[in-house]
Amino acid sequence: MLMTIGGVPAVFQGIAAIAKDDMIVKTRNCSFAFSSTGWGWIYLILGIVIFLAGIALAGIALFSGAAWARFLGVLLAGLSVIADFTWLPYYPVWSIVVIAVDVAIIWALCTGPSRSNW
Results as ranks from 00 to 15, higher is better:
residue 93 V to L: 15
residue 22 D to E: 15
residue 28 R to T: 09
residue 50 I to H: 06
residue 109 L to P: 10
residue 95 S to E: 05
residue 113 P to V: 00
residue 81 V to F: 12
residue 101 V to D: 03
residue 85 F to K: 02
residue 88 L to E: 03
residue 21 D to H: 07
residue 68 W to T: 03
residue 11 V to M: 15
residue 88 L to A: 07
residue 54 G to P: 01
residue 88 L to W: 14
residue 11 V to A: 08
residue 7 G to W: 09
residue 17 A to V: 02
residue 42 I to N: 02
residue 2 L to S: 08
residue 27 T to D: 15
residue 40 G to K: 03
residue 79 L to K: 04
residue 14 G to T: 03
residue 101 V to T: 06
residue 92 P to Y: 12
residue 102 D to C: 11
residue 112 G to P: 12
residue 108 A to L: 07
residue 90 Y to N: 05
residue 115 R to L: 10
residue 71 F to I: 04
residue 60 I to N: 12
residue 46 L to H: 03
residue 73 G to K: 05
residue 112 G to W: 11
residue 49 V to N: 00
residue 2 L to P: 01
residue 23 M to C: 03
residue 82 I to T: 02
residue 78 G to T: 01
residue 95 S to A: 10
residue 17 A to F: 06
residue 3 M to L: 12
residue 38 G to Q: 06
residue 50 I to Y: 05
residue 47 G to C: 01
residue 76 L to R: 07
residue 92 P to L: 11
residue 30 C to P: 01
residue 85 F to S: 03
residue 109 L to H: 06
residue 103 V to K: 03
residue 54 G to M: 14
residue 109 L to R: 08
residue 63 F to D: 13
residue 110 C to E: 07
residue 105 I to V: 15
residue 18 I to Y: 06
residue 105 I to R: 11
residue 44 L to S: 04
residue 49 V to A: 10
residue 117 N to D: 09
residue 23 M to I: 01
residue 52 L to N: 12
residue 111 T to H: 14
residue 115 R to T: 06
residue 15 I to F: 11
residue 5 I to F: 15
residue 58 A to W: 04
residue 87 W to C: 11
residue 23 M to Q: 10
residue 59 G to M: 13
residue 26 K to E: 14
residue 12 F to T: 07
residue 61 A to M: 13
residue 45 I to M: 09
residue 103 V to Q: 05
residue 47 G to M: 09
residue 98 V to K: 02
residue 3 M to G: 06
residue 95 S to G: 04
residue 9 P to K: 05
residue 109 L to A: 08
residue 78 G to H: 04
residue 20 K to Q: 12
residue 61 A to H: 14
residue 80 S to L: 02
residue 70 R to G: 09
residue 90 Y to F: 13
residue 106 I to K: 13
residue 66 A to Y: 13
residue 18 I to M: 13
residue 2 L to M: 11
residue 72 L to N: 02
residue 64 S to A: 14
residue 46 L to I: 00
residue 7 G to N: 08
residue 45 I to G: 05
residue 101 V to K: 10
residue 83 A to I: 00
residue 82 I to A: 09
residue 15 I to M: 13
residue 30 C to N: 15
residue 113 P to N: 00
residue 61 A to Y: 15
residue 97 V to H: 03
residue 56 A to L: 12
residue 69 A to F: 03
residue 54 G to S: 09
residue 21 D to N: 10
residue 111 T to I: 10
residue 72 L to T: 06
residue 28 R to W: 10
residue 65 G to K: 11
residue 83 A to F: 05
residue 88 L to K: 04
residue 66 A to H: 13
residue 58 A to G: 05
residue 111 T to F: 14
residue 66 A to R: 09
residue 26 K to D: 12
residue 94 W to L: 13
residue 41 W to M: 11
residue 3 M to A: 03
residue 87 W to D: 06
residue 89 P to M: 02
residue 89 P to T: 00
residue 31 S to R: 14
residue 106 I to Q: 11
residue 47 G to A: 08
residue 26 K to N: 07
residue 51 F to K: 00
residue 11 V to G: 01
residue 88 L to P: 01
residue 37 T to I: 05
residue 67 A to W: 07
residue 113 P to M: 00
residue 9 P to Q: 07
residue 99 I to R: 04
residue 92 P to M: 12
residue 54 G to N: 09
residue 83 A to Q: 09
residue 44 L to W: 07
residue 33 A to M: 04
residue 43 Y to D: 14
residue 34 F to Y: 13
residue 116 S to E: 07
residue 33 A to Q: 12
